[in-house]
Write a protein that binds this DNA or RNA. Structure first.
Length: 650
RNA sequence: GCCGGCAUAGCUCAGCUGGUAGAGCAACUGAUUUGUAAUCAGUGGGUCGGGGGUUCGAGUCCCUCUGCCGGCACCA
């Protein structure tokens, strides 16, 4: 038999018969390694212990202790174990797919009856039995026809469809967990007992379309999470509880920021406190935009369909638009308007007023544009996903050769704002030409390169999303990661030669001829509603002082301090700090608790001592320790803190 | 939009197999003048999301609409 040479991580190489499996290699090293082994790396590829190796290669045996692929394997095996448990309990259930995802896995099932929370308990119990049985995992490569015949005979149409979608030359691999079989790419563990039985949990059931296609069957998806240890699972569940406490919907109510109600689904009723955040943020962005060379504009809400037809929205976006019919004086034909879902067509109208020269470019236009989009009901989510929202929208009209420098300028602009708002962890994604597109390949080449070069020049790496661009141009997406690791796409820069074409925007070039400008759609926050939601969750409601809606509460300890409390609050107000008094006949404990729960960053407590000494006792949110400060001193300090970052000295 | 779940006082939630609504906090009134995360006592407050049905009787069972929640699909 032919010999192959396997090189171990320590650099030593040994000869084995060709076709040796990593399991046999592990066994040849030690009994304990054979037992502990879960998979292998063969020339870097993740390898099942049962797969034969038929060439010289570098090999490393993976065990549960290493960080590497252990968790992924465990989660993958759990997906199979769960599917097996489900089919053992309900034999008529059809199986589909069950991939590993962040923190766990899911598996999609086709079953007439819905799974209930009680069912999850049953499934979990059965899974633990399967794990306790330490059933061996076995694998074989099958002929395509045999696999299809097998699944047709066992009544698994989804598996048949999966096989039919796999390219013909690819081998089909079957796995058995005990007697239960599934089509699977692998690799898997050696036996079910290698899964930690106390470190997983089934979380929820949800609907999911077969193959992610909304025109196809709705399946039932069961989600599970799994870790290496019970403690790690516990830590994860605790993290979820912490995340729930940060939920902007909960904090929005507790902090009295806004509410929503049935009569206006997906639209926000901003309360005074919430609106303070909104306007403070808006004022800040407005100053930044002015400094960045943007001219602010404002455009109509209700616009005749003619413009939407010309812009292409009527064709492409109508489902998402609020359409308004107006029957003016019983006219023969009703006028049809739509609430604007985007600001760009209106901005082109402004650009089109009067002749523009190449000297006017780049022409940067900004609007806090209120948009209305008829979002599908299931998409709505607090103030993060709404039907009425305001974008920090902007459009840069420029020539194609200005795209790169405008992009570079925008990235600098955006990074400054994110830093001011406390976000340092964000990424860029470049979406490139999709299959269905307009424009020449040469033009796509140039524009994609311009965007990429601008990112690189600014020192930012980016991920390329092949084919994810709009039909008319590529785009950059700027994604923030919040404090608990969730990603939010906020900023965007999209290159659009199409809309200026459709709406016939022109400028006069140096050559005296008319030229078509390119339009860059760009936003930094995305929408105020979503961004404020992100801010609330990022800070768990404890917003930076300058953004906090209620910055200072001056709380009396005795009613004899009332007058001085008012004086302190007035002095702070005059210094531009949002201060209020709490002179209620309550104990200081009560007031401290209430305002702490309300996330007020600074409580100034005032009793006899402070009145006499003209001081205040300062209690900052989240700190047990208080400090005493002279009135003038604290006013100066808080005035500085209340100043938005762009207005601070230095 | 699709699948599943939920909807009871301002908030958080009880209300068993149908017999005409309850707690804590909040609010209001009074007492208390208080030293850093809930002082005490009293009072008021709900056509049980809307509509329809079954029943002698519906918060509870059925249908339907709306909204919300978890996903999917869609997306700023």
């Amino acid at each position: 038999m032919a010999q192959i040479s396997l090189t171990f991580p320590d650099g030593n190489a040994r000869a084995f018969d060709a076709g040796v499996t990593p399991a046999e290699v592990a066994a040849s090293i030690s009994k304990s390694l054979e037992k502990k082994a879960i998979s292998a790396q063969v020339d870097g590829a993740h390898w099942d212990l049962q797969w034969p190796i038929d060439r010289d290669a570098a090999i490393a045996i993976n065990t549960m202790n290493e960080d590497g692929p252990a968790l992924e394997l465990v989660r993958h095996d759990l997906a199979h174990i769960m599917a097996r448990a489900v089919q053992e309990i309900w034999p008529d259930v059809k199986v589909t797919i069950g991939p590993v995802i962040d923190n766990g896995w899911y598996y999609d099932f086709d079953r007439a009856e819905p799974f209930t929370p009680e069912d999850l308990g049953l499934i979990e119990k059965r899974m633990r039995e399967i794990i306790a049985a330490r059933d061996p995992v076995r694998t074989e490569v099958w002929e395509r026809d045999r696999a299809i015949a097998h699944y047709e005979a066992s009544g698994e149409p989804y598996k048949v469809e999966l096989i039919e979608a796999i390219p013909g030359d690819e081998p089909l691999r079957m796995y058995w967990h005990g007697e239960w079989q599934d089509l699977c790419r692998g690799p898997h563990l050696q036996h079910t007992g290698q899964v930690p039985a106390d470190a997983f949990k089934l979380m929820s059931v949800a609907g999911a379309y077969w193959r992610g296609d909304s025109s196809r069957a709705m399946l039932q998806r069961i989600y599970g999470v799994a870790f290496k240890s019970k403690d790690a699972l516990k830590a994860h569940l605790t993290m979820l509880e912490e995340a729930a406490k940060r939920d902007h919907r909960k904090l929005g109510r507790e902090m009295n920021l806004y509410h929503m109600q049935e009569e206006a689904p997906g639209q926000v009723f901003w309360h005074p406190s919430g609106w303070t955040i909104y306007t403070t943020l808006q004022d800040y962005i407005r100053r930044r935009q002015r400094a960045g060379g943007y001219q602010e504009v404002n455009t109509p809400q209700v616009v005749d369909r003619k413009l939407w037809e010309a812009s292409g929205h009527w064709d492409k976006y109508q489902e998402n638009m609020f359409i308004v019919e107006v029957d003016e004086d019983h006219a023969r034909e009703k006028a049809i308007n739509a609430l604007k879902p985007m600001n760009c067509p209106c901005h082109v109208q402004i650009f089109n007023q009067g002749l523009k020269s190449y000297r006017d470019l780049p022409f940067r236009m900004a609007e806090f544009g209120s948009c209305a989009r008829y979002e599908p009901s299931g998409a709505l989510h607090g103030i993060m996903r709404v039907r009425g929202f305001t974008q920090d929208d902007g459009h840069i009209f420029c020539s194609e050769d200005q795209i790169e420098s405008e992009t570079a300028t925008f990235i600098a602009f955006l990074s400054r704002i994110y830093a001011d708002l406390g976000f340092h962890d964000w990424t860029i994604k470049l979406s490139t030409r999709p299959e269905k597109r307009i424009g020449s390949d040469e033009s796509w080449d140039r524009v994609e390169k311009a965007l990429g070069d601008a990112c690189r020049a600014a020192g930012y790496e980016f991920e390329v999303l092949e084919g994810e661009g709009a039909f008319y141009g590529p785009k950059l997406e700027f994604t923030l990661t919040d404090a608990i690791g969730r990603d939010w796409q906020c900023g965007t820069l999209q290159v659009d030669p199409n809309l200026p074409e459709r709406l016939q925007a022109t400028f006069i070039g140096a050559d005296g001829a008319k030229h078509r400008p390119v339009m860059l759609h760009r936003a930094v926050l995305g929408s105020f509603e979503r961004f404020i939601g992100i801010l609330i969750e990022e800070h768990a409601g404890k917003l930076p002082f300058w953004l906090a809606p209620r910055q200072v509460v001056v709380a009396s300890i005795t009613s004899e301090a009332d007058e001085y409390c008012r004086e302190v609050a007035e002095k702070l107000t005059a210094a531009g700090v949002r201060a209020e008094t709490d002179l209620r006949n309550e104990k200081i404990n009560y007031k401290v608790r209430e305002h702490s729960v309300g996330k007020v960053p600074v409580i100034l407590a005032i009793g006899h001592r402070e009145v006499e000494e003209r001081t205040v006792t300062v209690r900052r949110l989240g700190e047990k320790q208080t400090s005493v400060a002279a009135l003038d001193e604290i006013c100066g300090e808080l005035e500085t803190e209340a100043t938005p970052p762009d207005l601070r000295a230095g």
